[in-house]
Structure formats: C-alpha cells, structure tokens
C-alpha cells in the first residue's frame, strides 16, 4: 500500500465491521417476509448456469424466437434469441449471450430491438482474447443521462460472451455496441479498451516497460514482428492520450511505457515522450477514427 492509499484509508469513517444488532436481525426477517420475484423461466437457463443456445448456427440461420412473458402482445419481448445472440430483459439489466460473434450486425440489432433497445451494432475485428466480446456501449455525442449505461462481462461463460447490459429504460439517444470477431491476418484490431498507462505487455517472457526504444525494437524484430510507435502524452489534469508517430519521430534512447498488439503481426510500442519530443499536441487533432465512428440514426 502506498502513501496515497494509506491517506485514503485513514479517511474511512467505518473502519471496523459492525456487530449485527437486533434491528439488523429484524430487518433480515422483514425482508424474508416480502414476496420474491418469480423466477424467470427460461429455456436456456438451468440451475443458474447459462447454457449455449440450443440452435444449430447452420440450420437456424433464419430462425428467431421471441418469448414474451406477462407483457402486452405488442410490447417488447422479455427474451429473444437468434443464431447470433440471446437477450433476456431483467428487472435491472439485460442479460446478453453472444453465440456467433461473426454474424451479420443485423442479427444483433434485431435482437436488441426485440427487447426494446434502440441500438446499432458493429461487428469489428479484435485480438483473439477479445473475440465475442461486447464492446461499448458508446453514446455518440456523450451520454446525457439520467441513469447509467454499462456492460458487465460474466464468467464462467459457455458461449463466446455472457454479460449484463444496463441502459435507461427510455433512453432516446443512439447507443452503439461492438461485437468482436476474429481479425484476419494483419488486420488492425478495434481497440476494446483504452491503453493502460501503468503499463501493458504484449510479449511473452519479455518485459518492455522501462526499456529503451532501441532494445524493444530489436526484440520485436527478433520475433519477426512489425513495429509501430505511439507517444503517450500525460495532460495537466493527469489524463493521457496517445499520438501515432512515425519511426523518425522517436529516439532510440527514449523509454518504453508498454506494448500492445495492433494486429497479428504488428506491435504498438507506447513511449514516454523524451527530450525534443515536444510540444504536446492537441489531443483532438491527433485522435484517430474509432471503431464506432460513422454510425448514425
């Protein structure tokens, strides 16, 4: 624990676990006297374990099943499944299970639409560890609330992806999700996450953080990998952004912050700007297109 953590810990107003008094025990009893929600009967959920959707991807390409439970006949379904994805609407979130990450984006959109969510879906190339992952949600122009949007991946998962999605019930803004498909050889990955400035490592058995650019470049070439460079700028408010630069902008003795695969054959080397790198550019001017750009209502 560092000094900062120790100081924050010292602010803890409830450092000691309380004893469970009589009122707490009464609360437990009172809660157990309230009715429980009916279990969501579901043909693909048994014993708390989510099973893969039991539809052959080949035979059922055009098959979709919508199950409405206790809703007006014209309202959104509470559960919907097709060969690509199944979605179940719960009290507080939507459970999403992706079975075919490479399916057409329209299969995902129809499923979201069936349960009442207005979303656009883009199937994007990703690194092997992110195949099947649900990226986003992205609200172009910024989420204006109220409420919150988010995705929480659930594990273990018998399908390509299992997760929960939170969206406000009456959200009028466009929401964009990505579904990660396997990238082709050399195809640039969509960035599922922001780069972590505390250091990421792409290479097995070799730590790049803290080494010079020259040393890391030599190691990448020894592994027959192409090299790309990004300067990692830290802003006054301790935010950060990266700038894609050519090899000519980088000095051999600058220090590497970390590495991440850009594609199957290329590694991005994130570098702390060294002497002469200067001045820090406007982050908006060096921003690159994101995987979710170009989608509109």
């Amino acid at each position: 624990m560092n000094d900062i953590d120790r100081l924050v810990k010292a602010l803890d107003l409830a450092p000691h676990p309380p004893a469970q008094g009589p009122a707490a025990r009464e609360l437990r009893t009172a809660i157990m006297e309230t009715p429980q929600a009916r279990g969501r009967s579901s043909w693909f959920r048994r014993g708390g374990v989510r099973l893969p959707v039991l539809i052959s991807a080949v035979a059922a390409a055009a098959v979709a099943i919508a199950v409405g439970v206790g809703l007006p006949s014209r309202g959104p379904a509470t559960e919907y499944a097709n060969a690509a994805v199944s979605i179940a609407r719960g009290d507080e979130y939507f459970s999403v299970t992706i079975t075919d990450p490479a399916a057409d984006h329209r299969r995902f959109e129809e499923a979201f639409r069936a349960v009442g969510l207005k979303v656009r879906v883009k199937v994007v190339p990703v690194a092997p560890e992110h195949v099947g992952m649900l990226l986003g949600p992205i609200v172009p122009g910024g989420f204006k609330g109220p409420g919150s949007v988010g995705v929480h991946e659930m594990t273990p998962c018998a399908s390509a992806f299992c997760g929960k999605v939170w969206l406000p019930a009456n959200l009028s803004q466009l929401v964009v999700f990505g579904v990660g498909r396997p990238a082709r050889a050399g195809e640039t990955y969509a960035e599922a996450d922001l780069y972590d400035p505390s250091g990421e490592e792409a290479l097995k058995g070799y730590t790049t953080r803290g080494k010079t650019v020259a040393a890391v470049r030599d190691e990448l070439r020894r592994r027959e990998l192409k090299v790309a460079y990004r300067l990692l700028w830290v802003t006054e408010d301790n935010g950060f952004f990266d700038e894609v630069v050519s090899a000519g902008r980088v000095k051999d003795d600058w220090i590497v912050n970390g590495t991440r695969f850009r594609s199957s054959d290329t590694v991005d080397v994130y570098i702390d700007p060294g002497p002469g790198a200067g001045p820090m550019p406007d982050s908006r001017e060096v921003a690159r297109p994101e995987w979710y750009d170009g989608l509109t209502d």
């Binding site: 995705v151 939170w166 996450d193 922001l194 972590d196 505390s198």
Partner: peptide
C-alpha cells in the same frame, strides 16, 4: 462493471 484494464487505469 468495467474491464480489469479500465479499472486499473482509473485507479492509477
């Protein structure tokens, strides 16, 4: 409800 990397980054 975020990725491990995002959580690390936020904490940092």
């Amino acid at each position: 409800g975020c990725t491990r990397i995002a959580a690390r980054s936020r904490l940092h």
